[in-house]
Nucleic acid binder design. Structure first.
Lengths: 144, 144
DNA sequence: CTTCCTGCAAAAGTTTTGCATTAAC
DNA sequence: GTTAATGCAAAACTTTTGCAGGAAG
C-alpha cells in the first residue's frame, strides 16, 4: 500500500547519503496517514516517545532529502507534511485563530493560470521560482 | 505626501483604543519607505535604538489595528509591511536561500480567478476566508 | 489624574546543538 | 569496523511579558 512511498523516500535519503531507519519510516508513516499537515507536538505524542531532538533532526533530514515539506503558520509550532510530489498538489486553509492547516485543492484552471503568471513574473523580475504557495487565510469551521 | 497614510493609521489605532505616538509614527514611516517587507533586525538598526520590546509591542499593536501585516518566512525573523489596503494588493517572491521577500503584482485576471476559487472553496469546506496569500518560492537574483 | 506607552531585564516558547551510546551498513 | 542515528540534556534564537518610570490625553 505504502510500499512505493517508502521506496521513493528511501531513494531520496540515499541520494543525500542518509539511511532510512525504522524511526524515519514510522515518521513518514505518520505523515502519510494524516490528512493534514501535522504539528510537532502531535508527532511527539503520536510516536510514543521519540525524543524531540530526534524528531526535529529527522524532519530536517527528510526535508533536505525532498521527502517532507514544512509549513510555517503565523504562530506556534511548524507543521509537516509529505512532499507534494509524493501526494498530490494542493493548497492550504490556514486558520487565523487556532493555527490549524487544512489541505484543499483548487480548480485546475486556476493552477494553470498561476503557472502562466509564474513565467511572466520570472522573466520580468529575474527571480527563479521553483514552486508556488496559495493559501486561504481565515477561520476554520470550529473557530468561526 | 504620507499625510493621508498617517491619518488612516491614527484612525485605526484610535478605533482599538491606542495612541499614535512618535515612535509608532516613525515605525510606520520606516515601513512606508521600504519597498519590501522589513525584517526585525533592520527595524532595530534603522530606528536608532528603539528597544526590541517596544518594537515588537508596537508592531503587534499596529497589526491588531490592521495597519501592519506580518510575513513569516521559513527561517529567521518575521518581516513586516504596511497592510495591503494602505498600499496595494500584491504578492511575494520568497527566496529559499537568503529569506528575503520581494513584492510583486500578478495579472488581474489571476486575482479574479483566485477570488472565484475562494468562494467555491468556502461553500465546499465551511472555511471562511478573509484573505489569500499567493507566493512564489525560489531563488532571488543574487542567490541564483 | 488616569490610562497608556516606554525601556530594561528577565522569561517563555520553539528549534538547534554537543556528546556519549547504540544501531546500520 | 566505520560511519551515521539516537537520546539526553543544555544551549540558542526569536518573541513575549513584568514591572517601574514617564508621557499623553
Amino acid at each position: 500500500m505504502t510500499g512505493k512511498l517508502h521506496m521513493t523516500v528511501e531513494e531520496r535519503l540515499r541520494a543525500v547519503g542518509q539511511r532510512y531507519t525504522s524511526k524515519r519510516r514510522a515518521l513518514v508513516e505518520a505523515l502519510a496517514t494524516s490528512p493534514n499537515p501535522v504539528a510537532v507536538p502531535d508527532l511527539l505524542a503520536g510516536d510514543r516517545g521519540l525524543p524531540q531532538s530526534s524528531l526535529y533532526r529527522n524532519l530536517s533530514v527528510l526535508e533536505q532529502a525532498g521527502a517532507v515539506h514544512r509549513v510555517v503558520p503565523d504562530e506556534g509550532f511548524a507543521r509537516y507534511e509529505l512532499a507534494e510530489d509524493l501526494t498530490q498538489h494542493h493548497h492550504h486553509l490556514v486558520c487565523r485563530s487556532c493555527g490549524t492547516v487544512q489541505d484543499v485543492t483548487v480548480p485546475r484552471g486556476l493552477e494553470r493560470q498561476v503557472e502562466r503568471a509564474r513565467s511572466e513574473v520570472e522573466s520580468r523580475t529575474g527571480f527563479s521560482a521553483v514552486s508556488h504557495r496559495l493559501d486561504l487565510i481565515g477561520l476554520c469551521r470550529s473557530c468561526a
